[in-house]
């Protein structure tokens, strides 16, 4: 049973709100102060990824964020992207940069997919306990992350 549950329409403007709420709930739950930056960045990345997937696949549903206290502080971010958006392999950002030449010559700045890949790479580098799984109901993915409580 989540302690706090937040649903937001899949627009970039709301990701900041999700970050602020997550940090406030994490602090209240007793996550050590030095880990709060990590919570802020990780929840932001997970929510940005969900927003990007919803926009890419024209899904209007809310992005769902669940925060749960317990032995650890756990955050789950659910998206409604289709099955093919599931991340089986986590890309290496340096590889992405190296191999995005064709994208870059055509379009001076990397495609959104590069940023989404980088987001996952950042998440894996940042969060010790991270899991990306298909949602139980069969639509979309769920990013689960947890942090210790002091």
């Amino acid at each position: 049973m989540p302690t706090v549950r937040l649903g937001f329409s899949p627009a970039p403007a709301h990701v900041r709100t999700a970050r602020l709420v997550a940090v406030a709930v994490a602090r209240r739950a007793g996550v050590p102060e030095e880990l709060l930056d990590e919570v802020r960045l990780a929840v932001g990345e997970a929510c940005s990824r969900a927003v990007a997937l919803h926009q890419l696949y024209h899904r209007k549903e809310l992005v769902d964020v669940e925060m749960t206290d317990g032995p650890r502080f756990t955050v789950r971010v659910h998206d409604r992207g289709p099955a093919e958006s599931r991340a089986d392999a986590l890309p290496d950002p340096v590889e992405l940069v190296a191999h995005s030449e064709d994208i870059v010559t055509a379009e001076p700045f990397p495609a959104a997919t590069v940023a989404v890949g980088m987001g996952l790479a950042l998440l894996t580098g940042l969060v010790d306990d991270l899991e990306v799984t298909p949602s139980p109901d069969g639509t979309g993915t769920s990013v689960r992350m947890s942090w210790p409580i002091a």
């Binding site: 970050r19 802020r40 960045l41 932001g44 990345e45 940005s48 950002p93 940069v97 995005s100 870059v104 010559t105 001076p108 700045f109 990397p110 590069v114 940023a115 989404v116 980088m118 987001g119 790479a121 950042l122």
Partner: peptide, 20 residues
Amino acid sequence: EFLDSTGLGVLVGGLKRLRA
């Protein structure tokens, strides 16, 4: 105060554009 992967993507894009 805050930088995420989207921001990194823009900086990488700027770097590649300038280098080119």
